[in-house]
Simulated assay, not measured.
Amino acid sequence: MSRTVFLNGDFVPFEEARIPVMDRGFLFADGIYEVAAIIDGKLVDEVAHLARLDRSLRAIEIANPYTSEEWIALMRELAARDEVREGLVYIEVTRGVAERDFPFPPEGTPPTVVMFTQAKRILGAPAAEKGVAVITVPDLRWKRRDIKSVALLAQVLAKQEAARAGVSEAWMVEDGHVTEGGSSTAFIITPDDRLVTRPLSNAVLPGITRIAVMQLAREMQLTIEERLFTVEEALCAREAFYTSASAIVMPVVTIDGKAIGDGSPGPMTKRLREVYLALARDGALASG
Rank of each mutant, 00 (worst) to 15 (best):
R3S: 13
N8R: 12
F11E: 08
V12A: 11
E15L: 03
A17E: 05
V21M: 15
R24A: 05
F28H: 06
D30K: 02
E34I: 07
A36G: 06
V44W: 01
L50H: 15
L50N: 14
A51L: 14
A51Y: 11
R52Y: 00
D54N: 11
D54M: 08
D54Y: 11
R58F: 06
I60F: 04
E61Y: 05
E61M: 04
E61G: 08
A63M: 11
E69C: 09
I72Q: 07
A73T: 10
M75H: 08
L78C: 05
I91Q: 03
G96C: 02
E99T: 07
D101F: 03
P103N: 00
F104D: 06
P106R: 08
G108S: 10
P110S: 10
T112F: 05
F116L: 10
R121T: 06
L123Y: 01
L123E: 03
L123Q: 01
A125K: 12
E129L: 13
K130H: 07
V132R: 11
V134E: 02
W142V: 05
R144D: 04
R145I: 06
V150D: 00
L152Q: 00
L153E: 02
Q155G: 11
A158R: 05
K159P: 00
Q160N: 14
E161I: 07
E161A: 15
R164I: 03
G166H: 06
A170W: 09
V173R: 12
E174D: 14
T179L: 12
E180K: 11
T185W: 00
F187Q: 08
I188M: 12
T190C: 08
D192A: 02
D193K: 11
D193P: 01
L195S: 00
T197K: 10
T197Y: 13
P199K: 14
P199D: 15
S201G: 15
N202G: 06
V204Q: 07
I208V: 15
R210K: 13
R210Y: 10
A212L: 08
R218I: 01
E219Y: 10
M220E: 15
M220F: 14
L222S: 07
T223E: 15
R227K: 13
L228N: 15
T230W: 11
T243N: 13
A245F: 07
S246W: 01
A247F: 01
V249M: 07
P251C: 12
I255S: 08
S264M: 05
P267H: 08
T269F: 00
R273H: 13
E274K: 14
Y276D: 00
Y276F: 14
L277T: 01
L279A: 04
